[in-house]
Simulated scan of single mutants.
Amino acid sequence: MDRPGFAAGVRALFGGFGFILTNPDVWPLALVPVVVALIATTLLGWGAVSFVPGQVRSLMGTHAGGLLSTAVEVFATGLSLLVAALLGLMLAQPLSGPALERIVRRVEQRLGAPAWPPTSVVDDVLRSLQAMLIPYAFGLPLLAALFVINLFVPPAVVVTFPLKMVVTALILAWDLGDYPLSIRGVPIQRRVVFMAHHPAAMLGFGLGLALLGLVPCLFVLVLPAGVAGAARLTVEIERWEATQGRSLDHAAR
């Protein structure tokens, strides 16, 4: 058995899509991120529409009701709705953590992997938040630095754009690849080392997600297939590690 590499990561992602599409019993779970995003965006948008116009009129004082006040009110409300939509999309993943982890368990069950102890909804949400915070804490500053380089040195885009894709790919590979590792109870330090030992596989998996993420709002739709693919890739890596006489615990040391 060959060591899982870049191609294995790409195959795992496509396998995740195949699993979702060919298993109607997981479709309700796969719809959860979309439903959560819609509910969160609607609630936040309603709050923005209810709060922002009144605040603008209050700030404009005697100018309220005029053309300038109306323009500012429309602009501020539109901006707040955009922020509400972005927050709704961001909240969709952690709040859908329990459903996504159940998809992971279904995939592993289908592949014949060992069953892991059940976890609570609170634990699932907290683990999902933790998985998101760690890569973004390191990845976002790198992406911001590349953006600044682009801003001041536009020709550098031939170098910075591929670097952005690589950084984004690794962020997403960690973000979704952490689901199957976290339900195993692997400490976070060992999860980092485990993924670092298989950079080509993680890059192949994450690059597919990064390319799909170039389409606005599409990432929420591909989340279920992404975690299904991450589960497939983790099981494949575990089985390769077993041929080397190592378990996940030893591989992460």
Rank of each mutant, 00 (worst) to 15 (best):
P33E: 04
V235L: 04
P216I: 04
A210T: 13
T160N: 08
L21P: 01
D249M: 05
G139F: 05
H198L: 01
A40I: 01
E238K: 05
A48D: 15
P224N: 10
R184W: 02
I237G: 02
L100T: 04
T234K: 03
P187C: 03
Q109E: 14
T22F: 10
T234M: 06
L248R: 08
L221K: 05
L211G: 04
L170E: 05
A144K: 08
P180I: 06
P154V: 01
T22A: 14
W240K: 05
V158F: 15
G15D: 14
W27P: 11
I103E: 01
D249V: 08
G5I: 04
A99L: 06
L29Y: 14
R184H: 10
S182P: 00
P224S: 07
R191C: 00
A137K: 03
P53H: 10
L233V: 02
V36T: 11
A231E: 03
S120M: 13
V49L: 10
S96Y: 06
P94F: 09
V122Y: 06
D25A: 15
L207H: 05
P141A: 07
F219L: 12
T42C: 07
L31H: 09
R232E: 07
R106P: 05
V215Y: 07
R253E: 14
G9S: 12
V52G: 11
G97T: 00
V222I: 12
V34P: 09
S96P: 07
M165R: 08
S50E: 09
C217T: 10
A225C: 02
V34L: 15
R57C: 10
Q93E: 13
M90S: 13
R106H: 15
L29R: 15
L146T: 07
L126T: 06
G9V: 13
A71Q: 05
D25V: 15
M195F: 07
S80N: 02
L95H: 12
A71G: 08
L203K: 01
